[in-house]
């Protein structure tokens, strides 16, 4: 099976987020970047499928040269080769169009994405990509089986689960459940050595137009200091929730 995994390069989950003083963009200084946590599940699932079915796993990321360090990590985890789309991923539709164009005649059987990227938290790219490829789409995917001709995916719906069947090629946006957390793969020494030699192709992608643009960023207002309530006086907590906070 020929699999593509879309990987987004995001600030580590523990990062303190700050914006440049003019509020125009993310202040990247001092930030540690990682593979988007949801995409790690997609990558590990892709590698499991390759082991049982044969084939290849290609990763693709849109971003400037700094994303290559994250891509090398994905190669060290076990992907075979990589494509970097050389442009700033400022708009999800632009990212989807660039990916669709770049893989146009490569005929992947399966395209695995994360449910959303934890930087701008859009969750738009995978569906847009499915529409551009006219391929079946399953989001919030927490389980995926392949029976030789079709896939059966389990997706989370509000308050429950749903199973969906589709033919390949298909686009899946997944999360924990795609593989177990204990099955997430991490790079080993040999993988890291090999990753240096694996092919990473750079494709120019700056001819695409962004359909949206960030005008400014700011931090949410800091919460007022916590009001401590005596553990023996739950009546006063209830009265504050009712009278001050008006939530009950």
């Amino acid at each position: 099976m020929k699999i593509l995994v879309c990987i987004s390069h995001v600030p580590d989950t523990t990062s303190k987020i700050a914006f440049t003083s003019d509020g125009s963009q993310l202040d990247k200084s001092g930030l540690q970047f990682v593979i988007n946590p949801y995409d790690e599940f997609a990558l590990s699932k892709a590698l499991n499928l390759k082991e049982t079915l044969g084939g290849s796993v290609t990763i693709i990321t849109m971003g400037d040269v700094s994303v290559e360090q994250t891509m090398r990590k994905a190669l060290a985890i076990g992907a075979d080769d990589a494509i970097r789309l050389d442009a700033e991923p400022t708009d999800p539709i632009m990212v989807a169009k660039a990916i669709a164009t770049a893989i146009n005649d490569a005929s992947y059987d399966l395209i695995l994405c994360g449910q959303e990227s934890i930087d701008y938290n859009g969750g738009i790219v995978p569906g847009a990509l499915a529409a551009l490829l006219n391929a079946p789409f399953v989001n919030a995917c927490i389980g995926l089986e392949f029976d030789g001709s079709a896939i059966t995916a389990i997706r989370e719906i509000d308050g429950g689960k749903e199973s969906v069947t589709a033919n390949l090629p298909a686009v899946i946006a997944g999360k924990k459940g795609l593989v177990l957390e204990s099955e997430l793969r991490i790079p080993n020494m040999r993988g890291i050595m090999m990753a240096r030699k694996k092919p990473l192709t750079v494709v120019s992608a700056d001819d695409l137009e962004a359909l949206s643009a960030a005008q400014s960023f700011k931090k949410p207002q800091a919460k007022a200091a916590v009001q401590l309530i005596d553990a023996d006086d739950m009546e006063s907590l209830v009265s504050k929730l009712h009278t001050d906070a008006k939530v009950i």
Binding site: L26, I118, D119, F217, P220
Partner: peptide
């Protein structure tokens, strides 16, 4: 944006 750590005007 950024898992509620930021607000963006888009």
């Amino acid at each position: 944006a950024f898992s509620s750590k930021g607000l963006e005007i888009c």
